[in-house]
Write a protein that binds this DNA or RNA. Structure first.
Lengths: 101, 101
DNA sequence: GATATTGTTCGATTGGTTTCGAACAATATG
DNA sequence: CATATTGTTCGAAACCAATCGAACAATATC
């Protein structure tokens, strides 16, 4: 059961995190993961075909915003709050709390 | 002495602000404006030709991140902290305070 | 082992962004 | 009014990002 490589906390770049979150669909994904906890990729499909969703999850993963745990055939995604909060204090709070898009 | 149109506070979009700040050069510009106060475009040239800098200032202005005041022939740029802090509380603090890039 | 499920990878298209030099506009100064 | 200064606009090139269908890989189930 192979797992993904996630970037180490120290290597997260502010600009990459911001870029990953600057897409409306990705921001919506992260907001939902934050509210509802771990979600599979499939649970969030509906807006786009799965190849598109897979792409966006990968962008978020590469930027260090989400963590993906593989269990069998399903991928559970979570926001890396601990890592993000340590490296960029207050950032995710500000982004996730905001009601404006 | 014509002035720019700046987007109204209510119309700022989180994703546009994040996108504007997701470029390393633009983030550096905003950090410097925040630390040193109003700066002309020219004061920040050095990394890129002025046409490139003009482009980045425009992206920041369109996203609502900076305000540009024209005085004679020079353009003074400032971060719209009041507007940004009202609409996205804590966001600029988190982005500007962070030491990581 | 055949089949279904979950998600990735590939390849192509489209559209947007960055970059920069050159020409331009507007104000200021000699 | 000629000239310098500040910054914009234009046009073209290069690059990057989003999108999606189709094929694929890996696990699970019958």
């Amino acid at each position: 059961m192979r797992q993904y490589d996630h970037p180490a906390p120290e290597t997260l770049a502010m600009t990459e995190v911001l870029r990953a979150l600057s897409d409306p669909l990705r921001l919506a994904i992260v907001r939902r993961l934050d509210r509802e906890g771990a979600q599979t990729c499939a649970a969030l499909i509906g807006e786009r075909p799965k190849s598109s969703m897979s792409h966006h999850f990968q962008v978020l993963r590469d930027a260090g915003v989400i963590h993906t745990r593989i269990e069998g055939v399903t991928h559970y995604n979570t926001v890396r709050r601990d890592v993000l909060d340590t490296r960029f204090p207050g950032l995710m709070d500000a982004i996730l709390i905001a009601r404006a898009d």
